[in-house]
Amino acid sequence: MTRNEITTPDGLDRTHHSIQLNTVATVIAVDEHHRALLMRRHRWIVDTIGLESPGGIVDLDEEPLNCARRELLEETGFEIDELTLVADLEPMPSLVRTRHLVYLGSNPRQVAMPSDAEEAAQLLWIPLEETTALLAKGMLLGSGTAVGMLAAAALFKGEPTTQSPGQQFVALPESH
């Protein structure tokens, strides 16, 4: 935490604390049934089990879009052709600076096993129509996941889809 001496726009001098964190990129990958690929995880800092989109910290000199692709592959074993930026946000601008970039893509395909077993946890396909209920229950962890799911639900609403099988665990290929 950094202590800052600032002058507000109305000329008031004051002390304000701040925290600077790295940029984060996250992905909402949506299948043909309008389900998002999320991870069921325990986050110790808030002692909560919930659902989270694949993503992570953008490395120094890494493009955020490349980070989003890398994290999707590492954490899930899935790739996606096109990703579109749907949100560029600062989740806590009063105290913390940590830019979050949320990407949306459709038609993900599994090409490998997750290479980061700790990060992958359980992979689930979650129907987009469950977004608001999951958000109200506190099940969507992190602002990137919440904003991304809301954006995906809004963008795909009313589009034709094949019959959705509902929530479903991802069957991972057997490792050799």
Rank of each mutant, 00 (worst) to 15 (best):
R41G: 08
V46H: 00
E130S: 14
T23M: 11
T131D: 02
V58K: 03
G158V: 11
L104F: 01
Y103D: 06
H42W: 13
P108V: 07
I45L: 12
V102Y: 08
L60K: 08
E74Y: 09
L89R: 11
L51P: 03
E63R: 11
L104N: 01
V102C: 08
H34N: 09
R43F: 15
L73F: 03
E75H: 08
H100A: 04
V30K: 09
S143T: 13
A29L: 05
I19R: 10
E129D: 15
S143W: 09
I45Q: 14
P91W: 12
E174C: 06
A153E: 14
L95M: 10
T8Y: 02
V111P: 03
P160H: 12
H16T: 13
V111S: 04
E79S: 12
L51I: 05
G50V: 06
L128T: 06
L83C: 03
P9W: 08
R97K: 07
G142H: 06
D61P: 01
L124H: 13
I6T: 12
L38V: 04
I45F: 14
V111F: 02
L140S: 04
T2I: 08
D47Y: 03
L37E: 07
G158L: 12
T2S: 06
R35P: 00
N22I: 00
E82R: 14
L51N: 02
M149E: 01
V24A: 07
L150I: 13
E90C: 04
E62I: 07
L89C: 11
D88E: 15
A171C: 09
V24Q: 09
E32S: 06
A120R: 11
V102Q: 02
H17G: 10
N4V: 06
